[in-house]
């Protein structure tokens, strides 16, 4: 095993373990903090793959904004978070079945994908992912329309959030 593989296995294991803690812990704030650990692990995987920009974005957006949003949302509730009822209801087996089936389907799909066993080509030296991304996002022949649509989507998210909060008043 190469050192990279060992690091990857450690990071992946830690990510999965903290993901498991998110759903099993009883304390909601602890669950949010374990979620941060999970998201951090995903960022580390991106970094191992040399996708530095995505790794940093993962931290900035997920740890810096979404995790904070979750914790604020938890703090808005009135109930004491230290104890709550059972963690699963009587439909737990349907959820488990669905999860197992989804996982099986994904494994099947990935298995039948020809590129799975292929080694990735080396990144050419001097390759700047961020400026490539900038090119693609602004070029009329590439992704300029999705780029602008993303802005509209963000606008819709903001308007929706304000609308929901406004009506509750």
């Amino acid at each position: 095993m190469t050192p990279e593989k060992i690091i990857f296995l450690i990071v992946a294991g830690a990510t999965l373990a903290s993901g498991l803690m998110v759903v099993t812990t009883r304390n909601l704030i602890h669950a949010a903090l374990w979620l941060v650990a999970t998201l951090f692990g995903v960022a580390a995987v991106f970094a191992i793959l040399n996708a530095g920009f995505i790794a940093v974005v993962q931290i900035v957006v997920y740890v810096g904004a979404i995790a904070i949003l979750f914790i604020f949302a938890v703090m808005l509730t009135r109930k004491d978070m230290r104890d709550s009822g059972p963690q699963h209801n009587k439909n737990w087996w349907a959820g488990a079945l669905l999860a197992v089936m989804t996982f099986g389907g994904l494994v099947f799909l990935v298995q039948s994908w020809a590129s799975l066993s292929k080694a990735a080509a080396d990144i050419p030296s001097g390759f700047d992912a961020v400026s490539q991304l900038g090119n693609q996002l602004t070029s009329p022949n590439a992704y300029v329309l999705p780029f602008e649509v993303a802005s509209v989507l963000l606008l819709a998210a903001m308007v929706g959030a304000v609308y929901v909060a406004f009506n509750r008043k």
């Binding site: 957006v61 904004a65 961020v130 991304l133 900038g134 780029f147 993303a150 903001m158």
Partner: peptide
Amino acid sequence: ALVFLVFDVEAVFLFPW
């Protein structure tokens, strides 16, 4: 926090630009 999240994502899009 929600308004912040929206602008955060927006700024991230603007960096490659």
